[in-house]
Design a binder for these strands. Structure first.
Lengths: 347, 347
DNA sequence: GGTGAAATTGCAATCGATTGCAATAGTGTG
DNA sequence: CACACTATTGCAATCGATTGCAATTTCACC
């Protein structure tokens, strides 16, 4: 049975019990070597006995550091969809772990919070020492403003190469290029692109799609690029639409996310179209379910572990006066059944 | 172009600019009616002009309230799997929104943080005013301890009815009963249960499974209850195992989560077993992908929206001196293809 | 004009920990 | 024994906002 602590203890209580001043107690607790080892030991013992914990608020006020990072998840105003995206959650977990590891707390903003002015709310008010911004961002002018305001922050997304703030993200263009080249090498001739190119990351994927087509001397057909939100439902509906529109000679689909791909797959199978024999399919993200749908989904895997860690490391470096650099992370093609058909050399 | 604020302003700066005392300024900013309306107006204007934001740390210290709730996600020590579970993330999103709505910030603990003593770390240190604990908890003695320590907290999980703290959760037993009755009504005779009954929520689902069998005068076979972690992979492997073990007369599977169900489905389809004709399948959670796999997955939907909101509302009520009550939320069976076969009346 | 009540505003203490600087004690040396 | 130095410890200011209580001003009314 735990002893019920009568009331929250303060540093001054501990100091009194140990028979030392508050300053000595404070230093002893932080293991400051200027304090005699025995004194330190004694104070620490007393603090432990009484389950004393430093008041984080008071410490923050005095030291002017919150030791807290705000993670802001941008979301699409149309679909309201963000925090439920499996991929985002993956990287969120990594960030949480890494922040903890570095001794920081994580303040998570919800979609609604995002309506506020983050700088004021999180930084000016001293709630957080820095910001990590995640989102399949359409270009957001709020992010630009941050960089003019001296707020330490990093962004997960698509680095165009010339933004004034650090961006960490996967090499989306390369990933898409891998995916589409793979489809081409499997004999696909007409490949649709499902994804909303108004999002900068998706735009990069579309560029990679074009790269691959061009390398195979195929002209990209604008009609085959179909803006599609990040949901399985959108993928499903969009694919039905495509079928309805008689784009019947389609033999490949590259979806900008696995969720979209699964929606597309559903639509294809429902119409009796064989995957991958008639239409081969590749997604992006490698979410947990991709390996377990039928047929399993070929996809492009992002290195969320490296990404999350890098975001944290770069941000903390920036906070501690250093520089934070943008970085492009390599991706990997995971071949599964949805694109597995006899290898045909393209003409 | 934004005006770069030279330096963070403090209340005393605003007071000086407005020609009033700090106390008046403070009251004016909080719209305290005791302050003359014109004075209030003026102070607020000046604060707005200078983008002044109250220092949250100082306020917290003085008011002894952090206006922050820590959300702790328990996870299975074995699988390390928690934050990636789609269902948890669903409810997390709802909680985040509701907290924001109520003017609270959300501190999210990662798996590693969970090693610490939450009470000390979050509550004693005044980082948070209360705790929300989420997890497919095996019975965790740390939770019990919390309730003896006067910490305001609520738990998402399985209410056994006699715990000393408020638990919000779905009616798992009822949900399972619905699912299994449904399978029975579809003519299934031998139904396996995939899920780890050492988790209290899953235990309730297992009880519901038994309820349904009993109502149909079928004896539950212990050999058909297979402890399975919350992953698609576990469902896949466990199902292969079952098949390997010649439990060939199996004609139904109730999986304790959709992820498990999808793993199971994969294993069945790979072995050429038709779903639902030979084996019908029902999951639990209704994650986003359930509707889009093939065949789509019949499942039990939890009311995450109500759940998340209730967790927040109950906790805040508790923090404000009220009582927080446990509550069991109704669930709903979503019938899809994985159990869709000709209706056969059980003998 | 006087008087009490109401409306405003300011003083100063307070929340709890950290830290620069001063003070004291202890040690060694010539 | 005096002096210089180092090792320890404590004093008091400080971080920025909030709030009980007192002080001052304003009014209404007799």
């Amino acid at each position: 049975m735990a002893i019920k602590p009568a009331k929250t203890m303060t540093l001054s209580d501990i100091a009194r019990l140990a028979g030392v001043s508050e300053s000595t107690a404070s230093r002893a607790l932080r293991d400051n070597p200027v304090i005699n080892a025995q004194t330190r030991q004694k104070v620490q013992q007393i603090a432990a006995d009484h389950q004393f914990k430093v008041n984080a608020t008071a410490r923050s006020l005095r030291t002017q550091k919150s030791h807290t990072i705000a993670v802001i998840i941008l979301f699409d105003a149309k679909t309201q969809q963000a925090i439920t995206d499996p991929f985002l959650l993956d990287i969120l977990g990594v960030i949480a772990d890494e922040l903890t590891h570095q001794g920081y707390d994580m303040l998570l903003s919800s979609s609604k919070t995002t309506d506020k002015d983050w700088r004021s709310y999180y930084f000016d008010s001293k709630r957080a020492d820095g910001l990590i911004i995640i989102g399949q961002g359409e270009h957001d002018e709020r992010v630009e403003q941050l960089s003019n305001a001296g707020v330490p922050f990093v962004v997960w997304g698509a680095a165009s190469g010339n933004e004034s703030f650090p961006v960490i993200g996967s090499d989306n263009r390369q990933g898409a290029q891998l995916a589409v080249s793979h489809l081409l090498s499997r004999g696909c001739k007409r490949i649709a692109f499902l994804g909303d190119i108004r999002h900068s990351e998706i735009e990069m994927r579309y560029l990679g799609y074009q790269d691959a087509l061009q390398a195979a001397s195929i002209k990209a057909e604008p009609a085959l690029q179909l803006n599609t939100d990040f949901t399985a439902q959108a993928g499903y509906l969009q694919t039905q639409q495509v079928l309805f529109n008689q784009l019947a000679t389609l033999d490949g689909i590259f979806a900008a996310s696995d969720a979209i791909a699964m929606g597309a797959m559903k639509a294809l199978l429902e119409h009796g179209i064989k995957v991958p024999q008639q239409v081969a399919l590749v997604g992006f993200d490698d979410i947990a379910m991709s390996a377990y749908c039928t047929p399993s989904l070929t996809t492009v895997k992002q290195d969320t572990h490296a990404g999350g860690k890098l975001l944290v490391v770069q941000l903390l470096s920036r906070i501690n006066g250093g520089k934070a650099a943008s970085q492009l992370l390599p991706v990997k093609l995971i071949e599964r059944q949805s694109s597995l058909r006899s290898h045909i050399i393209a003409t």
